[in-house]
Structures are given as structure tokens and as C-alpha cells.
Design a protein around this nucleic acid. Structure first.
Lengths: 229, 229
DNA sequence: TACAGTCTTTGACTTAAGTCAAAAAAGAAC
DNA sequence: GTTCTTTTTTGACTTAAGTCAAAGACTGTA
């Protein structure tokens, strides 16, 4: 597949004219990362941003003791690493490929020029950053104002809606990674899944599948109206 | 003071041409809020954003149980409430005046048109949102990966640098509000200040002033190399 | 100055979630 | 299939931080 075909399918670039697709194609660089490979690290100079073509990428922070907090998970069509492009500073977090991934890299200079010439591209990027601020707001709320059972319930409901999966969910990341996404550790996550199962909210099936038994109950856990026994 | 004079001093609008200042002036609306007054609430429809002229504003989330997490504190010249302008959804958090404040309101429609005509304004706004993403990244890291003493130490060092205050700090918010900013509660904050004092990191002077005695020690608390006894 | 109301601190107690260690289960490699 | 490695779960224990209650210190206003 050609670079231009990928670019045409990236929501960030929706609505642009053919000539702009050509411009973008001329500055984009295709890169390949193996599963587990580091794409950039917190503190690195950022002279461009990325878009996932295929595969998946996590954005995360590490504590000095090695605990990880996942900030985002990105899949095909999603851009990441934009912050330094516009703020002119280093990457505030690190990025790693969760699977073998193909990534497009857009160098800062060329991209900023394109934005200057192309208000729609600017507005698309503003929308992207705004949505990202919104998801961070939710993450902060979860970490600060909700307990782990509430965060987990919210994630399960999100999965169910986002993937249109009804009540039979298949986790798309390992439980270790899920713990890191929820701001906790695998042991705690495991215990809470067990409790949710025992109390009839869900049924764990194997290690990757979960069946929602009491959707309303999960909502109440999210909202704080109910807690695990 | 005239609206145009305020507008000229807003960093977000730096570098614009005189005609653009006029455009901005023509769409801006001056509003006044008393201390404690709500400016907007989470879930409200956002049909414009704000800039602080004078006074101070907090952006925050509330839990069902009434615990508050402050996301931002904004003072003169700083914009807030931009997210719905570009993402087209509701406000993800609430805003309240911490003091009697004068605020400029920029309606969405007019502003988006200006951005379309004016790439520099777009780039300025992109820089603003990017910086905000960066500060959220730090907040998430603090909440998830640091304990309260580390967060407090980071805040004290930040205050000292940001205000060029040397070792004699004056808190610019109440300790209740500081607790909410750090993602904890007043009792916990109070206890940790006491311990930092007893262990020689700081000296509390009255209820609003703090003297830094061991700057390196505070850095070590932030970095996790040291902990309170 | 005195009063009301808020802010801050302290004490006693509870609890959610983390640590450490080990077993069990699931996947990957040979 | 068997072995090795990684992931997940379970148990026993620790701990940071929260809750509840009350006292003290401030602040602003009458």
C-alpha cells in the first residue's frame, strides 16, 4: 500500500484537497517498529509527530520504582506525539509498539508549514488535541475521584460500547497492561475482577473474556452509588 | 480599560495584526464574576471560550461524594474553556471564580472563523492546547505514580521557581484548595506539612508562608529517592 | 471588639490498595 | 508433547491516606 492511500484514510486529514494529500505524502516517512520496541522516550526532542498505520502503540509514563501509567492506547489512523510539535518542548511521555507496527512520521517543520497554509488542517488538529484533553480529564477524574472498582467498571462499559460488543467482551490488552491503564497493579486488578465475578456483576471466561451480567450494577459502581461488598 | 487593550496583552493573541485585534474586539464580550461564582459547569454546552482579564479562576471536577479535584488555576491573560470550541462537545469540567474576576468571552462561531482566516492564531491556540496536555501529563503522573509528599514537594519547588521567590514562599491559594489541587484532602496535607517541618525540609511560618530549608531534599522527595520518615 | 464563619490542625480509627512471595495457568518455543 | 517463560491469581501482611470528630486559629463584617 502506498503512503498516499494511508494518508487519505487518516481522520486527522479528512476534508483536505488532493494537493494537500500530495504535500503530506511528500513529507511523510514510513517507519516500522517491532513489538515492544520504543518509538520515543520522555524527554526526547520531538521534531515531528506520528500516525499509526497498522499495529498498536501505547503512550506511558514510568515511575522511578518502575510502575507504569498508560496515558493512551492508539490504533490505526490515530496520531500521537503531537505535543512537542506545537509547544516546542520535549516529549512529555514515552511511546512503545504493543505489536509489530507500521507508523508514519511527519517532520515538524514541513507539517507546521502545511498547517499555516491550510486552516482546515489546523482545525482538525485543534479538534484532535481538544479530544485528547477531554480524555485526560476523564483519566484524572478516575485516578483522583474514583476507586479501582469504579475505574474498572467504567472501562468494561467503555469496551462494550466502543466495540459494540454487547455483553461479551474480549479484552484487547493483557491484564497487566489493563492494570497500568487503570492506574493500579495486576494483583489488585485480579482481586477486583474476582470480587466482581463473585458478586454477580460479571463472569470471567478464560483469561481474556468477560461477560457482563449486571450492566446497571456496573454503572452504579462507576457513579459511586454502589460499591463492592 | 478598553477591551482592545486587554486583548493586546493576551499571549494567545500575540503576533496578530491590528485588524485581527479589531476582529477579536468586535466578537469579545466582557463579563464579571463574583468570588465563588460558577462560570460554567461540567456538561454545559460550550459555545465559546474565556480569557481571564483580572482575578483568578479554577477549573475542577467533583466526585459524587463531593471531593474536588482542581485541574487548573488560571490568572490574567490565560484562556480557558476552549475544549468544546474545537471538539464540539460539552465542557468536560466546571469553572469557578476564586476572586472577583473580569473575564472576556469569545463566542465560538466568530472565533473559529477568525482562526480559519488566520494561521498564526491557529498555531498559537495549538501551542496553548499542547502545553495544557503537557501539564495534564504531569498531573496524571503525580496522581498515579507519586505519593502526596512528593506531589507537595513538587508544588513547593514549582512555586519557588515560577514566582522567583527564592526560599520564602507565600501560598497563593488556601490549603484547602491546595489539597484539592494535589489530589488529597486538607487533613492529609496538614499532616504532611507538619512532618516536612519536623524533618527539616521546610519551616511553616503562619498559615500562608513556608520557608524552604532543604531544597535538595525536596527534589529527592519528588524523584522518589527519599521519603518522609 | 466581638461574633460568625471558615480554615487549619490534631487525634483516634478505618480502609483501599500496595508489597512480597509463591502457586497456578496460559502461551511460546523447541 | 515437553519445557521454558510470561501472565495471572492467591495468600499473608503492610501502609499511605482517608474518615469522623473536635479543638484552635484566622478573617471579615457588623
Amino acid at each position: 500500500m502506498n503512503i498516499i492511500d494511508y494518508i487519505k484514510n487518516i481522520p486527522l486529514f479528512e476534508g483536505l484537497l488532493p494537493e494537500h494529500y500530495k504535500d503530506l505524502t511528500s513529507i511523510a516517512v514510513k517507519r516500522v517498529f517491532k513489538k515492544g520496541e520504543r518509538i520515543f522516550s520522555e524527554g526526547d526532542e520531538g521534531n515531528g509527530f506520528y500516525v499509526v498505520n497498522s499495529g498498536r502503540v501505547k503512550i506511558f509514563k514510568l515511575s522511578p520504582e518502575g510502575k507504569e501509567q498508560i496515558l493512551h492506547l492508539f490504533g490505526p489512523g490515530e496520531p500521537f506525539g503531537e505535543v512537542p510539535v506545537f509547544s516546542g518542548e520535549d516529549f512529555p511521555a514515552s511511546a512503545e509498539a504493543l505489536e509489530d507496527s507500521q507508523i508514519l512520521f511527519f517532520p515538524r517543520k514541513g507539517f507546521v508549514e502545511l498547517i499555516g497554509k491550510n486552516p482546515l488542517l489546523a482545525l482538525n488538529m485543534l479538534a484532535t488535541l481538544s479530544r485528547r484533553l477531554r480524555t485526560f480529564t476523564v483519566l484524572i477524574e478516575n485516578l483522583s475521584l474514583k476507586e479501582v472498582p469504579g475505574r474498572l467498571a467504567a472501562y468494561l462499559l467503555y469496551l462494550s460500547e466502543q466495540k459494540n460488543a454487547g455483553n461479551n467482551l474480549m479484552l484487547d490488552i493483557s491484564k497487566n497492561q489493563l492494570a497500568s491503564l487503570l492506574g493500579t497493579i495486576p494483583e489488585t486488578l485480579s482481586r477486583i475482577l474476582t470480587r466482581m465475578d463473585k458478586e454477580g456483576f460479571i463472569k470471567s471466561v478464560g483469561s481474556r473474556n468477560i461477560k457482563i451480567l449486571d450492566r446497571d450494577g456496573l454503572y452504579e459502581l462507576v457513579g459511586g452509588e454502589r460499591r463492592l461488598a
